[in-house]
Write a protein that binds this DNA or RNA. Structure first.
Lengths: 338, 338
DNA sequence: TTGTACGCGTTATCAA
DNA sequence: TTGATAACGCGTACAA
């Protein structure tokens, strides 16, 4: 078998051409399904290629066509957060489906003097760039400067002119808050995020608009910003529950903080959802395993990766006529915490 | 800038040669740090290359050297389990460090008639294979048959003759159980895994040996096998706590089941670790977020990916003299559940 | 519709 | 130590 493989490795276009009694150019055309070659000829060639076990040399093809069939995934931070695993699966499977390979640029392996955050990319060996996590303007300009299509994944805040695929954070929060309202809640607390970042502003608007829509007044003391950690959720939850009158429901802009709120409430002997309804956003793997299982707004992480990859591949092939910005709607997942 | 880039793209060895007043062959040698070229000449060439902004064309290089600089990661299942994210990060960052790209083979994109599980790999375009998840013998033989170095990642059970990097499940469990014993526990329950798979047998031995070591008798009714889910952990925990006399500590072979055991105990009004000590294995992301935080045996998932990648790259370069099988020791992480 | 011949940018084999 | 030149395997004008 090993010997056979060595043989296979050495089979080339000319071998097929000889066997088929045509020229190598015709074989090339046939293999690329060119309409120039007569169907009968092509079928014959394909049959011969199949019979002798020919497979074409991808590297030679790339050299001749000046492509690399490779996308580069750029990470700003090396995060163990499972969020990125789902995104990455979307990228991997889509890249695979379209015949692309992946190179990566992670902070761990970037070591340029002066600017350790600047990814080194070989534009000659990269057809497209996918940027994960949030990168600052300088880095994004650097990435775009390679002259290769570049798509930002769920991090387009502050980068209005760059291709991007984002989760609709605004819609997510407003959806979640509307759900709480539909359950009869009127005093709804928000555990938000810093308004310095686009995410914080988007989610705040989602909350505010949903409340206004229902003619509910927004009480400033029912809004606390956290830092995405469970601890900050616990703190925010405890603080919110200390208000008078306390909220009957709390929406947190990510699940970890929502779980923190749940813990704070349970520590005070409160029953969920009886005494307090809690909802989060993301649908992290262990949201469903909490007790009670957390109602949340699921972010389509896999879809983000897939859409971004399809977008960058479309740009590579100049076949993309769609929007430069694409937004994915998150989906409400009703469980038992409300 | 874009115009500059186009220029850069077109710079070739010959351009450097012309500018440096040498032949292209010499430039090639210089770029590859060949001892054949005189240091002065090489420095001159390197300076010229630097000055005119030459970067070498990786594709042409690969064609000439008959390499692909690409590793293929084969998945048996498309799993959202964060376990694989850590492994994947280890693979990605290591591949990047050594200048390799990644292609993937996932079940979602495999669609061959008769055998949808057989990955299609182009051995001409792949320098090495990394197989994640457990693959059956037939598939492993298929993978090895490509004539390209292949390393199994944490799934070498039943494949004694294939290169592999594994977690030492035996050591992990015995370590955890020994820790429980050191805390004074004598009746220690085990939530194990089916003995049909290597994992179940290894972990069982770890438990049994640790107990025997301390001259503790193994009570068969203190051992229940689960299916790795939290639900099965809850069930096993409840069952174990119903035994008379009940165990004072329970070790589960993965964290989700351990968390299930904790929940079962808490539902019975038991206090952890006061009334029952619980320990798990893996150190999944939310083990530390449980209340109380779960004591566990951490599997070095990132290390598995890194070690496997280094092994396969070593095999590619024939420079690997290390073991065909490599085992990583997990590490006890003491938190508050014991 | 098919064949000829050259280009893609390196590496490698000889001579010199 | 360096230079000329042949691979490497495929795509593609251009000619037939």
């Amino acid at each position: 078998v090993a010997e056979q493989l060595r043989q296979l490795k050495r089979l080339t276009l000319v071998d097929v051409a000889r066997q088929a009694g045509v020229s190598s150019a015709t074989v090339s055309l046939a293999l690329n399904n060119s309409p120039l070659v007569r169907p009968a000829t092509r079928n014959h060639i394909l049959a011969v290629a199949e019979r002798i076990g020919y497979t074409r040399n991808a590297t030679a093809r790339r050299l001749a066509t000046n492509r690399s069939d490779c996308l580069c995934v750029v990470f700003a931070v090396s995060s163990a957060d499972p969020f990125y695993w789902d995104v990455m699966r979307g990228i991997m499977e889509t890249a695979e489906r379209y015949g692309y390979r992946l190179s990566t640029s992670t902070p761990a392996t970037r070591t340029i003097v002066n600017s350790p955050d600047l990814p080194r990319i070989d534009p000659m060996d990269t057809d497209g760039i996918l940027a994960l996590n949030w990168h600052d303007r300088y880095v994004v300009r650097h990435l775009v400067g390679f002259g290769v299509p570049c798509v930002l994944v769920d991090a387009s805040g502050d980068h209005p002119d760059v291709h991007a695929v984002d989760n609709d954070d605004y819609a997510g929060v407003s959806q979640g808050v509307r759900y709480l309202i539909s359950l009869g809640h009127r005093r709804i607390g928000l555990v938000g995020a810093s308004l310095d970042a686009p995410f914080g502003r988007q989610t705040w608007r989602g909350y505010a608009d949903a409340m206004a829509e229902a003619s509910l007044t927004i009480e400033p003391w029912l809004v606390i910003n956290g830092d995405f950690s469970m601890e900050s959720g616990v703190a925010a939850g405890a603080a919110l529950l200390g208000r008078r009158p306390p909220p009957t429901a709390i929406f947190a802009v990510n699940d970890e903080m929502a779980l923190g709120v749940m813990r704070a409430a349970q520590q005070q002997g409160l029953h969920i959802p009886g005494d307090l309804a809690v909802a989060g956003m993301d649908d992290i793997p262990w949201a469903a395993l909490a007790s009670p299982p957390l109602t949340t707004v699921r972010v389509d992480r896999y879809g983000l990766g897939r859409a971004a990859t399809e977008m960058v591949i479309g740009l590579v092939n100049k076949a993309y006529s769609g929007p430069v910005k694409q937004t994915l709607r998150p989906e409400l997942v009703v469980r038992e915490s409300c």
